[in-house]
Simulated assay, not measured.
Amino acid sequence: MTIITNQFKFRLPIKELIARDKVFGFMQPQQHPLIDTRHNILLYLEGVNKTFDGFKAIDDFNLYIKEGELRCIIGPNGAGKTTMMDIITGKTRPDSGQVWLGSRLNLLTMTEAQIANAGVGRKFQKPTVIGCLSVWHNLELAMAGPRSVWATFRAKLTGEQKDKLASILTLIQLHDHANIAAGNLSHGQKQWLEIGMLLMQNPKLLLVDEPVAGMTHQEMDRTAELLIGLAGKHSVVVVEHDMDFVRSIDSQVTVMHQGHVLAEGTMSKIQQHPQVIDVYLGGS
């Protein structure tokens, strides 16, 4: 099998691809026909509870994410952040409560695959790119729709698909690395590639787990810029421990503690909350 990695050609000028005031049709999330966000809320979690062997990981948890919102979730280890994401994506079923995507899609009645196909994308802390394949082919494999490795290498991309790949490469700042093996990227670049792979699935909601762990300060700044740029076109929920990074995003913050919401608000407001200072921030 011969893998052709000839340099791709942009079908649109780069100036247009990175224009902040224009969103092309192929970059727009393809909304599931049953997603109803007429109330401007994309994700609802209400009265959610989950216990593991007597330990209450999630305790009467409520969370509402607006359409196009960028939200940061912080909290100490064991606060329930990972369990919360597992419940949203269908990996874990709660003991009680409700989880809805829009006002018509009940995520608790859907499988993990159905939830992903409905527009929920999740990025885990450790990048899971395919190191032996090029950046371009990683994105191509992640493209929405049924695509096997063999079918991908045999098929020819349409002009629109090539445009989308090119636009994502520009967005994640890897357009100069399209033909480089993903395994040769820096840690930060691998994280951006995985975010790009999620974007190829046209998600409405992105769950991003500790995206800047192990990054340099420059990579952290670029990651903040990328996530801020995604808001509006997507709803983005970021779970993070790095407070400097959370401050740089400057978005609404939810603080979790012992499975429930301890506080919500801007980072400046959260930093002055006595209970948050006591259980998480300390003197920082």
Rank of each mutant, 00 (worst) to 15 (best):
L165H: 03
R71W: 07
K204Y: 08
V120G: 00
H187S: 07
D242K: 12
M27N: 14
I65E: 00
L157Y: 02
H241I: 09
A224K: 12
P94C: 14
E240L: 11
F245R: 03
S103F: 04
V255Q: 07
G121R: 00
V276N: 05
L141G: 01
R122F: 07
L227M: 15
L171M: 15
G121F: 00
S284G: 07
P76N: 09
E160H: 08
E225H: 08
T83Y: 01
H137W: 10
Q7T: 15
L107P: 03
G97Q: 08
H257F: 15
N138I: 02
L139N: 03
G229V: 06
I41M: 01
I270D: 03
L107Q: 02
N106Q: 13
G265L: 10
T158H: 03
D250T: 06
F153N: 04
A166R: 09
K22P: 06
E240A: 12
Q258G: 05
V129Q: 02
T266R: 13
Q98W: 03
D242P: 06
R222S: 13
I14E: 12
H241C: 11
R11Q: 08
K66D: 01
L205M: 05
G97M: 08
M200F: 01
I18D: 02
V23E: 14
S134N: 10
E240R: 10
I87F: 06
S248R: 15
K9H: 07
T89S: 15
N106Y: 09
S148K: 01
G68F: 05
T111I: 05
V99P: 06
M215I: 08
L105S: 03
W150N: 06
V212N: 02
S148C: 03
Q191H: 08
K123E: 01
T170C: 13
K190T: 00
V99N: 07
M197V: 02
K162Q: 14
F55E: 08
L227W: 14
L63A: 02
L107D: 01
A57L: 07
E46N: 15
L207I: 14
D250Y: 06
M267N: 05
D242Y: 11
T51L: 07
M110N: 13
G196P: 05
A231L: 08
F8C: 11
H260Q: 14
N77V: 06
P127G: 00
I130P: 00
N77F: 10
I277W: 05
F10N: 14
V212M: 04
K123T: 00
L171C: 14
I270A: 06
L227S: 15
T82K: 04
G102P: 09
H234C: 12
R222I: 08
I277M: 12
R11A: 10
R222G: 12
V212D: 01
T89F: 11
P94H: 12
K15N: 14
G47E: 13
K269L: 10
